[in-house]
Each structure stands twice: as C-alpha cells, then as structure tokens.
Design a binder for these strands. Structure first.
Lengths: 120, 120
DNA sequence: TGAACATATGAACAGGTATTCACATTTGAC
DNA sequence: GTCAAATGTGAATACCTGTTCATATGTTCA
C-alpha cells in the first residue's frame, strides 16, 4: 500500500483505452490481497516446506531436520503459511503435525513449475 | 540462497520419513527458481500491471497513467516482468507496447484469485 | 512436582526490494 | 542538425522480510 501521485509530466497516448480499463480494474484491495497471497509462495523456505507437505503430513522438527534449518525458522514460516490458509495443523501431545489445507496449492505450484520449465 | 546449519539441538521424530523425503526433494536450485518466479507475482504493482495486460496490450505511459504511478516505477517493474518472461514487448517508433508472454499466467492468476475467495 | 522435550514468539539484525530522482538513450518531427 | 517525447537505468533511500537468539508456553513422563 504505497500509492503516491506521479510527479506530474505524465502523458497518455491512448486515453480512451485507459479510461475503459480503469472501469474494469478490480478494487485495489483485491489485487493487493492477491499479491500478498503470491508473496507467500515467493520464498525458498516456504516453497520447500510446501513441497515436503505435498508428500506427507509432518511435524515441525522433522521439517527442520529435512531442510537443515532451525526449528525456530521453520516455525516462523509455518506461521506465515498458516496465515495464508495454506497449511493446517493438528496437535498430538506436544508434537504438532502440519499438512496442506487446500487443493489449489498443488495446481498453482505445478503451473509455476511448468512455466519455468518452458521458458528455458 | 541462505543456508546455514541449524544450531545443533535438532531432534528428529520420524527419521525414516525424513530420509525418504530427502530422496524425493528436487534439487535446491529448482525450488529456488520456483520461489523466484512466484516472487514476481508478489507485488501489488506487478499484479496490477499483469491484470491490465490481460485486457489489452499497452504502452508504458498508459500503464503509468492507469495505475497512477510514475513512468519510471512502471518501467522498473516491467523490467522484472520481462526478466521472468511474463511479458514481451514490441517497439513502434518511440512507443513500446507490452503484452503477456505466456498462457500459464492467467491460469496461475485465476487460481490464486480463487483461493483467496474461498478462504473467507 | 520437576525435568526434558516440542513448539511458539518477540526483538534485533542483515539483506533484499520498490520507489524516487536525475539523467541517459532512442526516435520522430521540424 | 535541434527539440521534444517515450522509455530505460543507476544510485540513493526507506521500507519490508527472513533468520537468529533468547526465552516463553505447553506437554509428557518419572
């Protein structure tokens, strides 16, 4: 959310097109939320966690061990994933098991994968 | 690329599972690239640019005008989108027209949209 | 109850990133 | 050629974000 007016010397070439499009643009907030959502995918650690959870439900310390990172770092990232409703958890004693929360996730993941494959 | 060994007191609960998964994990670099790719979607300005380009090919100053941002800011972001092979461009005189470069993009976009709709 | 373990969390720090500003580059018109 | 317009770009700045460290919370087991 960082909107500032341009510094003034803006010219428009296709004014009519722009005014047309302005009407069809979704509200700022929706596109902002969408960007926030994709931001969650935009981190190596979180992507690796998601990939791991595609394979199996896992507890925090196992994920940490698998990715060779501290439990704290993983816990922080799981918090983010939880906030985006990408993972859910269940407690079993003092162990907390995380798993995927949504069906779109794998689809989005795969489509991204496909893109970076093809562009080479 | 920020890999550091955890500080030592790591315990594993399901060692066998972890060792299994370790074998199926794609190489670091691939997941890194995937995260880099999603990172491009993780910015409001770029998402708005992409949305605009879904509707129509556009030149830089029109995009700037539509989004009420400076031409420079837009140009910088188009550079990023170009780097990710999400947009292509054609020159017509001194005007540069940008358009979408790939079919996955809309699919990914829509799936993200769907997710944030449903999670509410 | 107390000790050990699994996880969560807040503060701090470092690295990354988006915008701005000033200016370079390229093209078209005269 | 000169001027103006459209775009690109590098440096600087302010903000954001991921990890670490220290510590808190909650649970099991003796």
């Amino acid at each position: 959310m960082n909107e500032k007016s341009p510094c003034c010397d803006i010219t428009v070439i296709h004014e009519e097109l722009v005014e047309q499009l302005r009407k069809t643009m979704p509200p700022e907030e929706e596109l902002f939320n969408l960007a926030e959502f994709f931001k969650v995918f935009g981190d190596t650690t979180r992507i690796r966690i998601l990939y791991a959870l595609f394979q199996s439900e896992m507890c925090v310390c196992d994920i940490a061990h698998l990715l060779d990172m501290t439990q704290s770092a993983i816990s922080h990232q799981l918090r983010v994933l939880k906030g985006a409703k990408l993972v859910r958890y269940r407690k079993e004693g003092r162990v907390v098991y995380y798993s995927l929360d949504d069906d779109h996730i794998k689809a989005i993941f795969d489509q991204g994968y496909q893109h970076i494959q093809e562009r080479n």
